[in-house]
Write a protein that binds this DNA or RNA. Structure first.
Length: 536
RNA sequence: GGCGACGUGGCCAAGUGGUAAGGCAGGGGCCUGCAAAGCCCUUAUCCCCGGUUCGAAUCCGGGCGUCGCCUCCA
């Protein structure tokens, strides 16, 4: 089977054929930087990251653009409130920094930090709207040349009646779109309430650029058209975003772009559905609004958050719950535990058994089939669980040699490149803890179970779980906490893998009233008397 | 009001015509000094009604319910 995506444009799955063989040009709508991104935003960015990673896995060279919207109403309003000097200047000749950057730079930086926290890969380009004003102006001029625009009070509007395909993406038909009160909220003067603005004429108290179009600033939609064309060409392969962007944003992008170029704008439109929290739309007024930072601060493992947001299909609405997070952590723990078990397999480096090769081949075939089918992550995850059960079974029965273990490890390593949720970062075991582990081993040998249980309980209280195996103690990750897997040389000598938690004590965390009991169940253990050194 | 999506076991969730993947949680068992982990066993006829078909969770019609967009909210 071939790689297929569900295209919003045709509302069906289509085989993916890139414009240029072996290469994908991908545009993803990025953040508006007036605040920290919330987990709903990140659901979309994670979907796009998965898409990017899988395309690479499938051998494509990916050129991804993610725009940064750093000029729009809220930013300008914030700047005005803060008394930041509003700028003016020729669009062609702007200084390195503009006053609005004072508002947006910190949030751009925070966005990239959050991205890294969630293991979202770097895109090739992160264009900022304010740096592409000249391109927007010339694009608007091309659209004007097509005779589909009109000017009113210094602003330039696109007349949707003049674009016959208007509505093709969203399914809205122009004659059915009511010019109701809600549509007509724009303060600017439009001939038809449904028209959209390409260029906003200068208004008192707002930032503006001096351009061939006059003084003003760009409308919302034009930045994506201008920047995508500049960096990816006038027709490119895939354009993504959240479902709320289908209308009007992407609909308008198509209209303005295809009018300007008289070419197809985008071949595949992919949209992710929204995230809900505990069954409700996430909203500040509901008290269920979370930024990534909120959750990390409260002790949730960001990689588990990544997994919780990725393991459900991107085109289904996702109900983000704390029970779901916990389950996601358990699923990940199965994998990390298995990898630890595989590491412990001793013996000769014999060639893998044919049955192991068959197993691995079957799993990988199914994984590819699942992901080829419009990124069917739930099915792919099930494949990894199947492999996990099979591998555990073979370890238990003792017919897994190091060569077999290596083969299975390779599968996880390969698919880790796609999912980014399997492999843990490892640190180094604290010497005080090592001493306790050694003491427990000797206690057990001496059948002093009171003392050995005491030590195990103590370690568990600070977030280290010891599990005894026939070969000696081993460790596993706590699903509900922040695991830092520690594996020092001496730990290995003891055949021990230990996990320690890092971070702040839970009693410092404020419990939110809307979820009584949440933190008893999910917060980090009150630690941290032991300092961890990250291992390279 | 217009457009669209969805409704599968306690929870999450695959499966789009041939008699229900996987995970979490729960129960039982093996293993263990006790645990933990792992393994084994264990819970559904797929919102309701009608239709098409030899046969439907899967197609069609109706109903109920949930959600999204129609507002510069991913």
């Amino acid at each position: 089977m071939s790689l297929q995506f569900f295209s919003t444009l045709t509302r069906q799955k289509e085989e993916f054929v890139p414009i240029e063989k072996g290469r994908v040009r991908l545009y993803t709508c990025g953040p508006t930087v007036y605040n920290y991104a919330h987990i709903g935003n990140f659901r979309t960015y994670l979907f796009e990251d998965l898409l990017r990673r899988y395309l690479k896995f499938r051998g494509y060279q990916v050129t991804q653009v993610m725009n940064i919207t750093d000029v729009e109403d809220k930013i300008i309003r914030t700047a005005a409130q803060k008394g930041i000097e509003l700028f003016q200047g020729a669009a062609e000749n702007l200084p390195e920094k503009i006053p609005l950057d004072e508002i947006t730079d910190p949030f751009i930086q925070a966005f990239h930090e959050d991205r890294h926290t969630l293991r979202i890969e770097d895109a090739e380009h992160y264009p900022r709207a304010t740096r592409y004003i000249p391109q927007m102006v010339s694009l608007i001029q091309r659209i004007i040349d097509q005779g589909v625009c009109y000017e009113s009070d210094g602003s330039i509007y696109f007349s949707i009646q003049k674009f016959p395909h208007y509505g093709c993406l969203s399914g809205h038909r122009i004659d059915e779109m009511k010019a109701g009160a809600r549509v007509d909220q724009d303060e600017y003067e439009k001939e038809d309430a449904r028209d959209f603005v390409l260029w906003k004429g200068r208004r008192e108290g707002e930032a503006y650029w001096q351009t061939a179009l006059g003084e003003g600033r760009p409308g919302w939609h034009i930045e994506c058209s201008a920047m995508s064309m500049e960096l990816l060409g006038e027709t490119f392969d895939i354009h993504c975003g959240g479902e709320d962007n289908i209308f009007p944003h992407h609909e308008n992008e198509i209209a303005q772009s295809e009018c300007a170029t008289q070419k197809r704008f985008v071949n595949y439109w992919l949209h992710s559905r929204h995230l809900m929290v505990e069954g409700r739309k996430m909203a500040k007024s509901e008290g269920n609004f979370f930024t990534l930072r909120d959750l990390v601060e409260r002790g949730f493992d960001p990689v588990t958050i990544r997994f919780a947001l990725l393991r459900q299909h991107y085109r289904d609405s996702l109900n983000f719950t704390f029970d779901g997070l916990k389950a996601a952590g358990e699923e990940r723990r199965r994998w990390t535990d298995l990898l630890l078990r595989l590491d412990e397999i001793q013996g000769s480096e014999a060639a893998p058994l044919p049955s192991t090769r068959d197993l691995v081949q079957d799993i990988e075939d199914r994984l590819i089939a699942a992901m080829d089918d419009d990124l069917n992550t739930p099915q792919a995850v099930a494949c990894l669980h199947d492999l996990t059960t099979q591998a555990n079974k073979r370890i238990d029965s003792g017919d897994l040699a190091r060569g077999d273990a290596g083969l299975i490890r390779e599968v996880f390593a390969r698919w880790e490149n796609v999912f980014g949720v399997i492999i843990e970062d490892r640190g180094v075991l604290d010497s005080e803890i090592e001493a306790l582990i050694e003491e427990r081993i000797s206690s057990r040998k001496a059948k002093n179970f009171k003392r050995s249980d005491e030590i195990r309980d103590h370690l568990q209280a600070i977030g280290i779980i010891l599990e005894d195996t026939p070969q000696g103690p081993a460790g596993s990750a706590r699903p509900d906490t922040f695991p830092v897997i520690l594996s020092s040389a001496s730990a290995k000598r003891l055949r021990t893998e230990v996990i320690q938690l890092s971070g702040s004590p839970c009693h410092q965390v404020q419990q939110p009233s809307q979820w009584p009991g949440v933190f008893e169940r999910y917060c980090r253990r009150p630690d941290p008397i032991h300092t961890l050194q990250p291992c390279v």
